[in-house]
Amino acid sequence: MKAAKFDYERPADLDGALRLLGGGGDVYAKVLAGGQSLGPMLNLRLAQPGLLVDVTRIPELTRVEDDGEALVLGACVTHAMIEDGKVPDVTGGALPSVAGAIAYRGVRNRGTIGGSVAHADPAADWPTALSALGAEAVVRGPSGSRTVPVSEFIVGVFETVMGEDEILEAIRIPKLSADARWGYYKVCRKPGEFADAIGAVLVDAEHSVHRLVIGATNAAPVTIADAAEVLGGNGVPGASFDLDAARRLVDGADTNLDDMERHIHAVALKRAVEQVAK
């Protein structure tokens, strides 16, 4: 189980990386941003790029900044750095708890937040969690930067809005108010496995945020941006958000899940909301 041949470059800066991605002619180039998902696909020969562009050492991609309203994490910040609190937490514990439940420690030490988002596996944690947190993806291309909400960044299984000549530069995570509440429930066969269902909820009344996300749906996460009403009148989740209410949301979402899968997603969503209600 050995990878097919590929070439490898490790550009010193973002411009160099963009040049390699854009200028290859008929060489299929792929960004290596930790490689914890790409590595297995290469070994299994499911992916056979001609060139790997290793961006993990590019300083712009490992930066950690506070821009006042949000925390900006370079795409190549690792899960373990977030888990261990080596980057500031502006989410009242949401970020480190999500990071700490991704795969296994050995993977978290090398895997990166940007790599995970750009890989766009619906069963991964970050696409759902960051959608719920209202995070944005900062995308750099030959013609400059653009910002896309993570909830719109992923459009399908392994599919994003990025062009082949673009790189995910950073994730911008808005600061939550002190009394914001976070709920996150992942259903998987065992720890470290990819999720069968994820429910995520953020209630940040001060910022008028009442957001639900149905994740791991075999497609892009489904974000319900204005969930104040379904969560119960004034937006404070209570007993009214039961399994039936969750199920109605799942049924109303555009997914191709079967009946049992929709049930499990509804349970995940309900349990996430229960965490917030507590």
Binding site: M1, K2, A3, A4, K5
Partner: peptide, 8 residues
């Protein structure tokens, strides 16, 4: 010579 080449 190597497993990778054999797979090739």
């Amino acid at each position: 010579d190597t497993r990778a080449e054999a797979e090739d």
